[in-house]
Design a protein around this nucleic acid. Sequence first.
DNA 1: GCCGTTTTCGGCCCGACTGTTTTCAGTCG
Length: 573
Amino acid sequence: MRNAEIADAFDELASLYELDGAVVYRVVAYRNAAKAIREAGVSVAELTRQGRVTDLAGVGKTIEEKIHALLDTGSIPSADKLKARVPAGLIEITRIPGLGPKRARALYERLGIRSIADLHTAAEEGRLKDVAGFGEKAEENVLAALAAGADGRPKARLLLSKALPVGEQLVRALREHPAAIRVELAGSARRLADTVKDLDIVASASDPKALAEAFAKLPELDTVSSPGEAGARATTHSGLQVDLRIVPAEAFGNLLQHFTGSGRHNEALRTEAVRRGLHVSEYGIADDEAGTTEAFATEEEVYERLGMQFIPPELRENRGELESARRDELPALIELSDLRGDLHMHTTLSDGRNTVEEMAAGARERGYGYIAITDHSASHGFGNDVQPDELLRQLEQIRSLDLGGIRVLAGTETNVLPDGSLDYEDAVLEQLDWVVASLHTAFRLPEQDQTARMLRAMEHPLVDAIGHPTGRLIERRQPYEIDVDRVIAGALETGTFLEINGNPDRRDLNDVYARAAAEAGVMLVIDSDAHGLERLANIRYALATARRAWLTREHVANTRPWPELDGVRKRGR
DNA sequence: GCCGTTTTCGGCCCGACTGTTTTCAGTCG
């Protein structure tokens, strides 16, 4: 059973307990455990079999037993019992804005509402306002939410690549205003998470009202509500919500820290601060003993006051960064300027939009010393496959080019066939400088077969790297069934690099697995997988994932000049 | 339910907003 499935079961259990009226701390404990399981980076089922699952922070004896039950029987007994008392449909009702567990429970008990459909009917018939605690307004709000498309499913999140350019444009525009002192993007966009729910912008200004009014007039925004001293809330033309918050410059650091999150990071940071008599909020840090509240203009000062290193936003997920920062042991995260080359991109020979020369010129402008051209192989199946003779002609062409200043490696992104063999004969692969192997077909193989397929590909002496190793498409497609622990072990044994793919739909390996791979000693490559010149810039998303995975330049093969990289890869060892 | 050089029991972040409340519970981020 996958970590995501186990985590889902505990999130559901938490919701059921919440609806049943359990003390919030128990509910929070299950939610924390679900998060720890989701982000474990290694197989929690395996960890449980080894008796080590309580090593995960937030998983104790009770939850260990429940995981055992889940793995053995497919369900958690306490969840089954709760479902007999509380309809699971109430969980969907709690996803309607304004309706939480208490109110959903009240609707069930007073009106027998057990589904979104029941809720809809009761609201239309005007029966909600008969329930204690509900009035006209509550009924209106429910009807409005349902009319606006709320259906009880978790809200889809927006890909970072869709939201980030919008946020950066708004920040640029606000900074140009004469009243602006500081303007920064906050929230999950600043943490460069895979997806965002909305955009948060934090500002300080000499004339807050003027800045808010200027914000309201920006052409990117559709509707804006009540621009005032404290900021404004807006929606872009594509429906993305943007919150602008304006604070005095003296407290800008506190507010930026607060709104950058994550919620879990802040919660853990504050809990730890309380033990030392400090209370952290968006307004400042209160000291019990001194009876004072200090505000800080910069985040650096906030973290310093709390006795820790500055924590880069990408690490603020409560995944151990607070402890490391207190010990002064945060890693020196990889930076864009560390990258020497890009080892995965396509040209017009397969499904790219630009030629080898154009891609090389673009890469040179980015300051790279080398690139690898890695068009799709013969059985790609999505148009424009590359037969061996075509590949060899491209190789000749690359060898004859004079591209002054940048080394162009002749490579391929070869398909891994269902049995783990590659798409080209060794005689062809031997002539290439760089081989990426990826899975593009037979996604539905059982886990054992998929894992064996990948392991066999990694055992091939000419495979330098595995492209997008789990095959996920963020918000669209789950990873294929594969045992990532064994893939990481296989990569370590064979000396195969694992890729962090920069296509913003992929970002694969993800942050959690990339961190696990690096900790195991596997070397990673950070690639754009560009299918066009302008997509070379997608490297920023791969870099973002690498930083969220705590990687330093040492962990990443293509921070090295080519001759050095050539020496550390499988065939150079 | 979890956790621990202040604790193996007694804590568990902080504040804003909404609506239905005569003083606050529930929800949200």
